[in-house]
Amino acid sequence: MIRYSQLYWQFFKKHLKVMMEYRLDFFIGVMSVVLIQFTSIFFVKVVFDQIEDLNGWGFYEVLFIYGVATMGRSIHHIFFDNLWTIGWQYIRPGNFDRLLIRPINPLFHLIADRVQQDGFGQLVIGGLLMAAAMPHLGVEWGPVNLLILLVLIVSSGAIFVAVNLFFATLSFWIVDSLPITFAAFNLSDFARYPLNIYHKGIRWLLTWLIPYGFTAFYPAAAFIEHSGYRELGMITPLIAVISCWLAYRFWKVGLRAFNSTGS
């Protein structure tokens, strides 16, 4: 574990150097993400200009959910973005072999191979959203609450990673699972709004099957008095651990299948 953290730092330093070398690229990437995020937040604002509340949820509460989602996504976006590319960048052109002849865990290598600078844009937006929403929730933001919030955000990021890892793993059998991964990822857009505005089926799907509900709505609801989901929100870390464990098991199965078929 210590070895892998040190190794990750070595990888990270290299990526940082590249980023600094192409500062304009970095800036454009970050700005474009900021813009995309702003448009969707603007949309929320427009909606709330027309209505008082959304099924009992006020503007700042929805903003808070949005903020948690964006923070969670940014963790996934910055550090684990390479999961997207496994099919077309690694398996199809045969580059995955390169990872397999190295004396380190191939999943670690895959992830460490890339740091996605655009994700920093998400991080900035997420931070701004949180800062805007947090004072209006009627919560005392003492150190304990802030620590819980941090744990829940990291868990949210971990769930994004787990779901993506699961679908990316399909690439071992079908070469490129990008369309499926993308479709699944888009479901997470639902989770940026209060889940109880949806039909029961969708709610169940996003809670227990593809647990995107735990990337934003439930952890945010943990801090909102009247949400009715405070307890469910607090099990987010548990859901994150289980999801990651399952996804990693599945990855192992895929890796074995790849090992004995090859390409």
Partner: peptide, 10 residues
Amino acid sequence: KMLSGILTPT
């Protein structure tokens, strides 16, 4: 590939 551990032999 089998010698380098990328593939498992049948």
